[in-house]
Design a protein around this nucleic acid. Sequence first.
DNA 1: AATTGCATGTAAGGAGTTACATGATTAA
DNA 2: TTAATCATGTAACTCCTTACATGCAATT
Lengths: 189, 189
Amino acid sequence: MLDRYICEIYLLDMSRSRTPFVVLGLLLWEPMSGYDLKSTIERTVGHFWQESYGQLYPTLKALHAEGHVTLDVEAAGARQRKVYAITPAGRAAFSDWLAQPHEVTPARNELLLKVFFASVAEPHALVPHLEAARRQAQERLEVLVAIREAVRVEEATDHQRRCWLLTVEYGIRMAEATIGWATDGLEPG
Amino acid sequence: MLDRYICEIYLLDMSRSRTPFVVLGLLLWEPMSGYDLKSTIERTVGHFWQESYGQLYPTLKALHAEGHVTLDVEAAGARQRKVYAITPAGRAAFSDWLAQPHEVTPARNELLLKVFFASVAEPHALVPHLEAARRQAQERLEVLVAIREAVRVEEATDHQRRCWLLTVEYGIRMAEATIGWATDGLEPG
DNA sequence: AATTGCATGTAAGGAGTTACATGATTAA
DNA sequence: TTAATCATGTAACTCCTTACATGCAATT
C-alpha cells in the first residue's frame, strides 16, 4: 500500500524517458539547480536535445526520491535555490545507460510527408517545400558552423572536445546533405 | 452544452496532429478502411512516417464527424468493413495543409546524447556508439536502395515518381551522411 | 520605474504507443 | 487444425509541452 503510494508519486520509468540521464550526465560535471540545468542543456546539447521545466522539476524530485541525487537547499537571502548533486547510485544508473546502445526511434518527418503528397497535387506544389527545406538547412548550417568554432576554442580535454565536436559535426553533415538533396530535387523542375 | 459535448467527443485539433492529413491524403487516391490505411501507410510512407491503430481509428471517427470523410459499411458475410471516402470538405482541409510550409520540430537524438556524454566517460566509450550508428545507417541504406529500385519501376506518372523518389532519396542521403560521419569520427581513435 | 534574469513549481491537456479484447476467413 | 491475415476498436498509460502562478534581485 505504502509501496504503491510512493511508487505512483516518485518513481520514474527510467527505461523510456531520457530526461533522468541528461540530468545525471550534467550533474556529473558539477552540482546544479533545476534552473541551471535548463540553461546548461540549452547551451550544450540544445542543438539536438531540449527539456522543459515541466519535465525537469518532476524528474529532479523523482531522482531525489530514488537516491540518484542529493538535495541541498541554499537560501541566498529570501531567494531559495535547490542544488542537486549526483550520488554513487546516480553514477551507476548513468553508466548503465551510457553503456547501452542507443534506441532507434523511427522518425516522423513532416517535410517528407508534404513532398510525398505533393504527388497528388500539381507539380509546382513541390517546389516551395524543397526551397523551404533548403533555406532552413542553410540557416541551421550557419548556426552550427558558428557553434563548431566556439567549441574548438573551448577549454577542455581532447576527448571532451572530440565528443562535443562530433555532435555538432553530425548536425552539419545532415544540414549539408539536406541542402544537396533539395538542390538536386529542384533542378529537373 | 451540446456543442461542448460533440466537441469533446469528436473534434480533432487538426493544427497539431498530422494523422488526419495522412489519412486524407491517402483517401484522395481511393476509398479505404482503417485496416487498409494502416497497411498502405507502412507500404508507402512507412520509411519516414508511422501510425498505430490506436491513433487511426479515433481519427477516422473524428474525420467522419467533421464531414471530411464519408463512411460506407460493407458487410462481406459476418465480417464488417468500414470504407471511408474523402469529401470536398476533406479535400479542402488537405489542400490547406499541403500548401502550408512544414513545421520545424526540434529533434531529439539519443545517439548524440550518448556521444556527447561519452565525454565524461573513458575515451573508448565513444567507439561502440559510432560503430552502432554506422552499422544501422548501412542497414537502412540497403533497405532504402531496394525501395528506390522498387519505386523506379512502379507504374505512375513522372510527377508521382519524382515525389516518391525524393522521400526515399532523402533517407538515402541521410544514411550516407551518417556513415561518413561515423567513419570519420572513428578514424582518429 | 520597469524590465530582464533568477528561481521554483503545478495543472491541464495533447499526441501517441501498447496491451487488451474480439472475432471471421483463408491458406498450409 | 493451426496459423496468418483480415478487421475493428478501447483503455490505460507515458511522455511532453504550454500555460499558469508566484516572487526576489539586479540592472537600465
